[in-house]
Simulated scan of single mutants.
Amino acid sequence: MALPARLGGVIPPICTPLTPDGEVDVDSLRDLADFLAEAGVDGLFVLGSTSEAAYLTDRQRRTVVETVAAHLDGALPVLAGAIDMTTPRALDHARAALASGADGIVATAPFYARTHPAEIERHFRLLAERSGAPLFAYNLPTSVHVALDAELVLALAADGVLSGLKDSSADQTNLREVILAARSDPGIRDFTVLTGSETSVDTALLMGADGVVPGLGNVDPHGYVRLVGLCAAGDWQRARAEQERLLALFSMVGVGSPARMGRGSSSIGAFKAALRLRGVVRHATTAEPQIPLSEDEVARVAKHLAAAGLL
């Protein structure tokens, strides 16, 4: 489907359910897409960080996009990550995703090699030109080790290279600069600004962001739909209460012991365990080499769900 001029609301970065042997669990992926759609989300983002895109093979990436796009059949916009180290590799992912039914592309800056701002700019310009699709920049400095500053993002927006920004930098000053310019410059008023922070959605929307891409939205999409609705209605007191409930639920990402696993294993493991406990997916398998949660850690996830009224 054609993307709206400004894509907003709740656009979860959908988890990728896996079978115990590490293949994409297509049936669970369809069920998860239905669960999110029925909650009233405004779009889905496949092959992002929460989707474990970095751990999937090219074949698995294609399977994810094809499955979600075909299952939704135009009912919701589908953004797909084209995230890789270099422009040619990202462009290959973009073309494959678009051929599989994606409506737009999300890309980080190139990484691994040290990049100059001019090279980052060239990366986005080439992706937009050669893919011919709406392109969203993904500001993810914790993973790609370079931040996209407001000046570069706005220059690319003004030239029609970027359709939007997904900001997961936690730099609210930079985010505010993008929002202020996007809302005041007639040439980029259709530019979409999405926060990737699960825990400060009310703040971002009050600043003027269009929506949120919350990993936790896989687990509690209804909560994020409520939160965005309250913000849109100007009911900031109730929005704050809902945000604080979600903040407490988000603490599930810390259930994994840092003595034996990284933050990513703990976070993705918690989201998948929660989805299995809620009966949405069949397995809580995470991609290798991530470390699975223990039984005790899964039990702690259950306690978080119960405290949030989800079990």
Rank of each mutant, 00 (worst) to 15 (best):
L3M: 09
A5V: 12
L7D: 13
P12S: 10
G22I: 04
R30V: 03
F35G: 02
A39C: 01
A39G: 02
L47Y: 10
A53P: 00
L56G: 03
D58K: 14
R59V: 13
V65G: 05
D73W: 08
G74A: 00
P88L: 03
D92S: 12
L98R: 00
A99W: 00
S100W: 01
A102Q: 04
A107P: 02
A107V: 10
T108G: 09
E121D: 13
R125C: 02
L126G: 00
S131D: 00
A133V: 01
A137Y: 10
Y138C: 05
P141L: 07
S143E: 13
H145R: 13
A150D: 14
A158N: 08
G160A: 09
G160H: 04
G164M: 04
A170M: 08
V178E: 07
L180S: 10
R183A: 02
G187P: 02
D190M: 02
T192C: 10
T192P: 06
D202W: 06
D210S: 10
V212C: 12
V212W: 07
P214N: 07
N218C: 08
V219C: 03
P221E: 02
G223C: 06
R226K: 12
L227V: 04
G234N: 02
G234E: 03
R240V: 03
L246G: 05
S251V: 06
V253T: 14
G256P: 11
G262K: 10
G264P: 01
A270H: 10
A274C: 01
L277H: 11
R278L: 14
A284D: 15
A284Q: 15
T286M: 11
I291C: 09
P292M: 11
P292I: 08
S294E: 15
S294Y: 04
R300W: 06
V301H: 01
H304P: 00
A307E: 15
A308R: 10
